[in-house]
Simulated scan of single mutants.
Amino acid sequence: MLATRLDLDRIRAARRVIDPLFLDTPLYQCDPLGHHLGCTVSIKLETANPVRSFKARGTELVASLLTGQGRTAAVCASAGNLGQALGWSGRRRGLDVTVVASRRAPAAKLDRIRALGAELELVDGDFEQARERAATLARQRDIRLVEDSLDIETCEGAATIGLELADSARSVRPSRFGAGSAFDAVLVALGGGAMASGVGYALKTLAPAVEVICVQPSGAPAMTRSWHQRRVVSTDSTDTIADGVAGRYPIPAVLDDLLAVADDAVLVREESIVEGMRLLLEHAGLVVEPSAALGVAAVLENPDRFADRHVVTVVCGSNVDLPAYHHWIRR
């Protein structure tokens, strides 16, 4: 048994709570992208849903729990995607949702949070300042503070992605990529760690031969540094276009989970992230936000590691400001 906060029975039960709109997302082999990268590439697409990211898998659990407890309100800090997801799940269940975000967050994400009916408060500074303000509001209003990655529901919601991947891995004939496995590595964006620890836990429990590789921008390396040093390592600042994974203070409990389930954690350069976005558009027809291109960036930076292998990259979000997107991919 893996020594983590996660539980396989709870993750399986989560599928009965999460709206089916967010479950059983497409997983398909993308040959044009694979030919360009020199390996077999499959895409796990988490953007074809009402909030355009995987985050609602977790907020569906949180919102269901809160309404079951008779709660009527919640607050969270968000780089954009969590706020949208909590707004969607909260509206569906009659919760009043407040989202605290940085003024520097992509305008498209902020506009969508407002459109979903959530109260939006903006702060100067980065996500960490938003997190501090959200905690203050929770105390002042005596409402639930939803903390991505720390709240186990956000991790176990994301872990349902891993269940779907594990089911796919076990449903095919044995191949040279590993006994009974359709692929031998999964590339997961790493920020606070909810998706990486959740997907990693499900795979290591149900398909342990599959390598779990976490990918983070070099401009926001706190969790990757922490994973390699096996202790919390914070940073003074971040400098990356991948706003969705730009945290500075890893959560100790989440790091412990990640240490138990991840095989590796790597950093990638900004130019590789941009190239990954461009390749996903050109070869897969997908407009994605920078965090969703981290897996492709990892293959670009280390092609020998992945040559002739079959990898899955989790495309985790597509909430992006189009002017910024066009600027990046034309650069």
Rank of each mutant, 00 (worst) to 15 (best):
G198W: 13
G247K: 08
D243K: 02
V245S: 06
V215Q: 00
V245W: 04
T224L: 01
V210Q: 11
G200D: 13
S234H: 15
S226A: 10
L259T: 01
V232I: 12
T205I: 02
C214K: 05
S218N: 11
A246Y: 10
G198N: 15
K204V: 01
A265V: 04
Q229F: 15
A202V: 13
T240E: 00
M195Q: 14
G191F: 14
T238P: 07
V268M: 07
A242N: 04
P221V: 03
P252W: 08
D264Q: 13
P250H: 12
V232Y: 13
D239E: 07
V254E: 01
I213E: 08
W227V: 00
R269F: 11
A209V: 15
L267M: 10
E211A: 15
D256H: 13
T224G: 01
R269E: 12
A207H: 05
L267T: 00
K204P: 03
D239P: 06
A253E: 09
D243V: 04
A265N: 03
L258A: 00
D256V: 06
T235P: 06
L259S: 06
V232M: 05
A265E: 06
D256A: 15
L255W: 02
A196R: 05
V210L: 15
V199S: 04
S218D: 09
A194M: 06
P217F: 06
G200Q: 07
V210F: 15
T240A: 00
D264C: 12
L206E: 14
I213P: 05
A194R: 01
V199N: 05
I241E: 08
V215H: 00
G247A: 11
V254P: 03
V210N: 04
Q216W: 11
A196T: 03
R230D: 02
A222C: 05
H228D: 10
A246V: 05
R248W: 13
T224A: 03
A194K: 01
S226H: 08
S226E: 02
R225S: 10
P208F: 15
I241T: 09
L258K: 00
V261A: 08
A220Y: 11
Q216G: 07
